[in-house]
Design a protein around this nucleic acid. Structure first.
Lengths: 151, 151
DNA sequence: GTCGGTGCAAATAGTTTGCATTAAG
DNA sequence: CTTAATGCAAACTATTTGCACCGAC
């Protein structure tokens, strides 16, 4: 996706913070916190301020370049490039990885809600918490409410 | 659901804040913010402190009585009694109402992920934003998501 | 009487904002 | 040259925490 033209379309200026935030966002597949985006940006150009990162992220969200999601893992919002609008987040509670999956589930949910419930779905956000393929099936002995084994 | 016995099972004391928070939670079908729960509780017993409400809510979440969800409407978390674990939130962007819908969508999503993606789903959280039956189909002209580039 | 739970106030985390300055167009 | 965008610092919101006291058991 071309940041510059995307910005110009909206009569917005192409600035260093915007270029760097976009670079960080699109280079990492992960769901980054504003904080970590700031750190990465800051590592490249220390002059960029934290608030510019926040302002840039909100701006990107407004013009549809980025997307904010509160995955609920912790308190902070996570950011990612906006690609697919309907997307499932598979959060592995064991290894903390976040997989993406966009399939027909969203499509069928959409039509189901429209047909049977008169609800016109615009944005569908699905977060599934569980265990990914790598971490295998549920462990026999694990305290269910174990928040994070990472201590 | 019986708060007192639920607490006793976990060797927890039955206190005024806990009783009141539970009362508020179970009486209102809505998704309440901690703030509004505090207000309602406080209206009944002004001695109850805000932090007790927060502590109580986390406690309820831990023992499975309540459930926190970041609906993303605003910054604050929303709380509700824990009833159905798998539940769809239908958020109407027009009238701000939140409908609940727990059906087979979650069940089929679960099995789909298990069968085709080796992902063992534990908790499924679905938030659909759109327009509810009452508000009808999409309006022709509305400046809902106006990307306001600060004038 | 014991100690888990509370009220209070202060701290923290994440994010936002007012304003003077800078740099994109 | 104009004014959008930035850097900075301070403000704000939601939530958490340390500690002394209180009340459930």
């Amino acid at each position: 996706m071309d940041l510059e033209s995307e910005l110009r379309v909206h009569d917005l200026r192409v600035t260093t913070p915007r270029r760097l935030v976009w670079q960080v966002l699109s280079e990492s597949a992960d769901h980054l916190t504003a904080q970590s985006i700031f750190e990465k940006v800051n590592a490249v150009d220390a002059a960029v301020n934290r608030s510019s990162v926040y302002r840039t992220l909100s701006l990107f969200a407004e013009i549809g370049l980025a997307r904010e999601s509160k995955l609920g893992e912790d308190e902070a919002s996570r950011w990612e490039p906006a690609h697919a609008d309907d997307e499932i987040h598979l959060v592995c509670e064991s290894c903390d990885s976040v997989l993406h999956h966009s399939g027909d589930v969203v499509r069928s949910l959409r039509s189901h809600l429209g047909d049977h419930h008169d609800f016109e779905a615009r944005a569908v956000e699905i977060v599934v918490r569980g265990r990914c393929a790598t971490c295998g099936p549920a462990p026999a002995s694990e305290s269910t409410s174990e928040p994070s084994p990472a201590s």
